[in-house]
Nucleic acid binder design. Structure first.
Lengths: 156, 156
DNA sequence: CGGAAGTTGTTTAAATTTGAAATACCAGGT
DNA sequence: ACCTGGTATTTCAAATTTAAACAACTTCCG
């Protein structure tokens, strides 16, 4: 825990990233909700399921992908189930588990919302970036993520 | 709303930024809470107040800086007031308003937490970046933020 | 001046998120 | 088969966040 300060430029970068990524998410979620009855969380659930083999995922795996606490996902899937976007099915091999399954209605909702959402992402984010920016961001955040998961695995 | 798709590299950048900035915040907040009784929100309130002239800010201004909805800030300041970190005072000139004021205890809490928190930011974020990364991130996110506020001001 | 219209913060109730404890089950010995 | 120690998910209560409705002021204009 040595070196307990940041230089002004380091602090500026940290604040810029945190603040504007937050504002960016808020803006994009507003767009999504105005256009579609979906929360960004709803949308992300639909995306993950739609990309999964069999359009289904174990609750735990889905929680990991979404960075959701388990009980949060239970609730989230609960509300989506009420709206008919997903179904819950017991897991065949492991009877402790259950899986969330994308319904036709869920897939339709995703397909209906995707163009508008991706347009919003382009408008607020991608359009501000040139090819070098894009590559730099991917490289930087991928590395940060790797380091974070490494740190989580081996905390001592 | 034309051009409703993203190329794979664009999508990859978007996902990398969103996911790992989220994981980064979670990690850093965990560190902060383990070391200090403060939430990241608490910490940010303390920082804003400590940097403000007179160590005080109008509720509205503070809400803007923190990107908080007004009622959320009311609640947030409420809990911090109970813990003695801030005080609430009526605004001298505008009797509708009130301001949040940093207490000595609040300042002490900030000073006690800052080194550990900044160390955490360094460890999980700054250390992964070279000078070029730092500059690129600041430039990119500053621009995104400017565009976002411009869009908010002139939505039509 | 008089009052419509806009601001500022707070309140309230409902929705969401968290975190701890409960449930149900799996896996490896014994 | 019977423990013992995990793992997967849900449940429950408490804390937080949001959205809408208010109360109290200010401002602006006619």
């Amino acid at each position: 825990m040595r070196d307990e300060k940041l230089r002004p430029d380091e602090l500026a970068a940290w604040r810029a990233v945190v603040e504007s990524s937050q504002r960016l998410l808020i803006t994009i979620e507003d767009d999504l909700r105005k256009a579609s009855d979906l929360t960004l969380a709803d949308y992300n659930v639909l995306v993950q399921l739609s990309e999964a083999p069999g359009r289904r995922l174990r609750m735990g795996d889905l929680a990991t992908k979404l960075i959701f606490a388990p009980s949060r996902l239970t609730y989230q899937i609960g509300t989506m189930e009420k709206r008919g976007l997903v179904t819950r099915e017991p897991c065949p091999d492991d009877r402790r588990g259950s899986e969330a399954v994308l319904t036709e209605a869920g897939l339709a909702a995703l397909r209906a919302a995707a163009p508008g959402h991706l347009g919003s992402v382009r408008r607020h984010f991608i359009e501000d970036l040139d090819a070098a920016d894009l590559a730099a961001l991917t490289k930087i955040f991928t590395r940060i993520d790797e380091r974070l998961s490494a740190a989580r695995t081996e905390p001592r």
